[in-house]
């Protein structure tokens, strides 16, 4: 990621903090991150995409334990990373926290939580966003 460029993070705050996706009012399909138009309805969906807040509930579709991380994440390694099937339809990639790495399984139920994702060193901005944790 390019460092120090705050607008790039700032404009995604609704998505990263609150999982704001959008919905095609033609076919009801939900997207995250939001799309300019629906890839299914295309022209018909233009002007009919409405903001839609996802619940943050979902389950593990697949996962890995990252042992060799990029420098922004290496203090946290080993950490689980998963593709999560959200209940409203979209899938997203995120870290799983507050759980033993041995416990991560396909199908595990999750909910979103608010964490620090990365920062631009000791001097730069701090970027927050979603991670996921176990849901009973």
């Amino acid at each position: 990621m390019a460092e120090g460029a705050v607008p790039r993070f700032w404009r995604e705050i609704p998505q990263r903090y609150n999982l704001i996706g959008n919905k095609c009012n033609e076919c009801e399909k939900v997207f995250f991150p939001p799309r300019e138009s629906c890839p299914e309805c295309r022209r018909k969906s233009m002007g009919k995409m409405k903001d839609f807040k996802l619940s943050g509930e979902g389950e593990v579709l697949t996962y890995t334990i990252i042992y060799e991380a990029s420098e922004k994440f290496e203090g946290q390694a080993p950490y689980p990373l998963a593709i999560i099937q959200l209940k409203e339809g979209p899938k997203i990639t995120a870290q799983i926290v507050d759980c033993d790495i041995e416990d991560v399984k396909i199908g595990m139920k999750l909910k979103s939580t608010f964490r620090k994702i990365q920062d631009d060193g000791y001097v730069g901005a701090i970027y927050y966003g979603y991670k996921f944790k176990k849901r009973n």
Binding site: M1, L81, A82
Partner: peptide, 22 residues
């Protein structure tokens, strides 16, 4: 995807590893 994969801690091997797991 820098904004929606790498930003959240995904690495290149990590993405292929998730394919392998599945």
């Amino acid at each position: 995807d820098q904004e929606w994969e790498a930003f959240f801690g995904a690495t290149f091997p990590g993405i292929y590893a998730m394919i392998a797991t599945r």
